[in-house]
Amino acid sequence: MAFSTIKLQPSLVEQVCARIASEIRDEGGGSNGWLPPERDLALKLGVSRPVVREATKRLELQGLLEVKHGVGTKVVDKLHKPLNGSLALLIPDDKERLRQLVQVRFMLEPENARLAAEHASAAQIRSLRAALTQLEQAQDFETAVVADMTFHREVAAASGNQIATLLLHSLSELIQSSLIRGYSRTSTENAVRQHAAVLGAIEKRNPAAAAQAMREHLITAEADLALPKPKKTSRA
């Protein structure tokens, strides 16, 4: 006896979540960054207020909305927040978090640079150049960290892969901690030179060179962290 697969329909709450998220994207952040009042939104969508309330709660947990009680529901861009909170619980030791971050960056960022060399628009290359200039001209620690972070985010955005961009953005707080530790031990000289190499390869549309330049940059960044070697665990 043959059975066909049952196609599960999304729940009403899931449909409302998808509709709200779609409207936010289409409107470029919603009407002045705020959703309509709960009652009005329920009427517009043809659902009950409890369904709207549950949908907005889910989107708040995902970092897309921020519910301000007594004020309204604001559209935000905090999609990275859930991951940042989970990482601190999953890996309590800050040095171990940085060590594992380096491993992930080696997996992700050379490929971002390779794709950026293939897909970066002229506007994205200008944004990369602006971030590099900001790093070159940084006169203080905080500005250097922001400029460095901006450059890596722009490379991810220029890759054309939205998942890769979100992944890097999700790691932004941890990457910032890594940069703070690294810059406390060294100057911006190496970072400026290596960022310039990555950008140069992207401008020349040379994917292999862009990936290699990013890999070499990450090797230096890892050394700058001066993390103690992990303790070997004995096997039974």
Score class of each variant (00 low, 15 high):
1 M>I: 12
2 A>M: 14
5 T>C: 10
5 T>H: 07
10 P>I: 10
13 V>H: 01
14 E>F: 05
14 E>Q: 15
16 V>M: 04
18 A>C: 07
20 I>Y: 00
24 I>G: 02
25 R>A: 13
27 E>P: 01
29 G>K: 09
36 P>D: 06
37 P>R: 10
40 D>V: 15
45 L>Q: 03
48 S>R: 14
49 R>W: 06
52 V>H: 00
52 V>L: 07
58 R>I: 13
58 R>S: 03
60 E>T: 13
65 L>H: 02
66 E>S: 12
67 V>C: 03
68 K>N: 12
68 K>E: 12
68 K>P: 02
70 G>L: 07
71 V>Q: 08
73 T>R: 09
76 V>L: 11
79 L>S: 13
79 L>A: 15
79 L>P: 00
79 L>E: 12
80 H>N: 12
81 K>G: 09
82 P>Y: 06
87 L>I: 12
87 L>A: 08
87 L>W: 05
90 L>G: 06
90 L>I: 14
92 P>L: 07
93 D>T: 04
93 D>H: 13
94 D>L: 15
97 R>P: 00
101 L>W: 03
103 Q>Y: 04
103 Q>V: 13
107 M>W: 14
108 L>K: 06
108 L>I: 12
109 E>H: 04
109 E>R: 07
111 E>G: 08
111 E>S: 05
111 E>T: 13
113 A>G: 05
115 L>D: 01
115 L>A: 06
117 A>L: 08
119 H>S: 09
120 A>S: 10
121 S>N: 13
121 S>I: 09
122 A>H: 12
124 Q>A: 04
126 R>C: 05
128 L>C: 08
128 L>D: 00
130 A>T: 08
130 A>K: 13
133 T>R: 15
136 E>G: 02
140 D>T: 12
140 D>W: 03
146 V>N: 12
147 A>W: 03
149 M>T: 11
149 M>G: 04
150 T>H: 10
152 H>N: 05
155 V>C: 06
156 A>Y: 00
156 A>T: 07
157 A>T: 10
157 A>L: 14
158 A>V: 04
161 N>T: 08
161 N>G: 05
164 A>T: 09
165 T>W: 04
167 L>A: 11
170 S>D: 09
170 S>C: 06
171 L>W: 00
171 L>E: 03
172 S>F: 07
179 L>G: 05
180 I>V: 15
180 I>Y: 11
182 G>R: 05
188 T>Y: 01
191 A>N: 10
193 R>E: 03
193 R>L: 13
194 Q>H: 06
197 A>Q: 06
198 V>D: 04
207 P>K: 02
209 A>R: 11
210 A>H: 00
211 A>K: 01
212 Q>N: 09
213 A>G: 03
213 A>W: 00
218 L>V: 12
221 A>N: 06
224 D>S: 14
225 L>R: 03
230 P>D: 04
232 K>C: 09
234 S>L: 15
235 R>I: 15
